[in-house]
């Protein structure tokens, strides 16, 4: 449903030098520097898929979404969304997509949500019965009551975001772009919105492209992620594979009974894996996945173990390392 090939966007920004004289010179002549926001991305998204776009601020996530929703033109490259070129903005294309931005209100600020929805019905030419059905369903999914008749600007951030979601999905788009939909919301509302997105997908299976800085969003919603660094895709694949490929280890944490049995020796234990921590009461070892059982076994046999746990590495840490450009585990 979304096909992107070598998509590239370069912005021109003016170079600014300090000092009054150079400022005055800049009134007449100006130097420009090019800033690559997205450099040659290629990927595709299928129906019913939720793909997480991850990257630091300025990595090009929003620019990518803006190009795919047709708001801005790329510098070069191609993209097809539902078979159309987004930035041609054909009506047949625009009636089938939606863009939701957590950072930017899209609804009419001084109208109650109910009025906004009526206007959107008119804009998207949604037939009356379908409009009623969709609205009813969305309202019950998001658990909205009489906030419908309150001016948007008087709603809380969480309520407003729910309204934005309804507004964007009223016309049952087949492709949905979500740009940080949970930003700034409290945990309960975040969860409500995540559940809603999953439920919505189960019912209508649109293609979704989601950006978020919250790992929780990504883990709950996306089976597949794309990681961007300075405009380039550095990873595109399943969330599980990130862990297997970039974090091929697990951590064993052992609490020891004080004063009983052998005292652990870091150098000795390094045969099993990387020793993260080693004291009289606690040992933490990072071992390759295929040798984890063996290592645990040995620890249990050699020491008087009070408690033992095996943990997956934090997925957020792994992704953060990839985003920062150092995918290997620091030694």
């Amino acid at each position: 449903m979304i096909k992107v090939q070598n998509l590239r966007k370069v912005f021109r920004v003016h170079k600014r030098e300090p000092g009054l004289t150079s400022s005055i010179r800049a009134l007449f002549r100006r130097e420009w520097i090019e800033k690559v926001a997205v450099s040659g991305s290629t990927f595709s998204v299928a129906e019913g898929e939720i793909v997480g776009l991850i990257g630091a601020n300025g990595a090009g996530k929003t620019t990518l979404l803006k190009m795919l929703s047709g708001i801005i033109h790329p510098t070069s490259g191609e993209a097809r969304v539902l078979g159309s070129i987004p930035w041609k903005r054909e009506n047949s294309f625009r009636t089938q997509i939606a863009l939701i931005m957590g950072q930017k209100a899209q609804l009419w600020w001084d109208l109650p949500a109910a009025d906004c929805f009526l206007l959107l019905r008119e804009i998207y030419r949604i037939p009356e019965d379908r409009y009623r059905k969709n609205l009813g369903r969305l309202i019950s999914m998001l658990n909205i009551g009489n906030e419908m008749n309150v001016q948007i600007r008087r709603l809380s951030l969480g309520e407003r975001m729910k309204m934005e979601l309804i507004a964007a999905l009223l016309h049952s788009p087949r492709v949905v772009f979500l740009d940080e939909p949970t930003i700034g919301l409290d945990l309960t509302t975040q969860r409500a919105i995540r559940d809603f997105i999953l439920e919505y997908r189960a019912e209508l299976s649109p293609a979704m492209l989601l950006t978020s800085h919250y790992m929780e969003d990504i883990q709950r919603l996306c089976k597949r992620i794309i990681i961007l660094r300075e405009g380039s895709i550095v990873y595109d694949g399943s969330l599980r594979r990130v862990i297997e490929e970039y974090a091929p280890y697990k951590e064993i944490l052992v609490h020891l009974r004080r004063g009983i049995g052998a005292v652990p020796d870091a150098e000795d234990l390094s045969r099993l894996g990387d020793v993260v921590e080693c004291s009289e009461t606690q040992v933490k070892i990072r071992a390759p996945r295929d040798r984890i059982a063996e290592a645990a076994n040995e620890l249990l046999q050699r020491f008087s173990v009070a408690d033992l746990s095996i943990d997956e590495p934090e997925i957020g840490d792994t992704i953060e390392r990839i985003m920062a450009g150092r995918p290997e585990e620091p030694r």
Binding site: R16, L20, I24, A26, L27, R30
Partner: peptide, 13 residues
Amino acid sequence: SFSRALEYRMDFW
């Protein structure tokens, strides 16, 4: 204000 104003040169003209 001078440094800001000169930044927006179109507006200046």
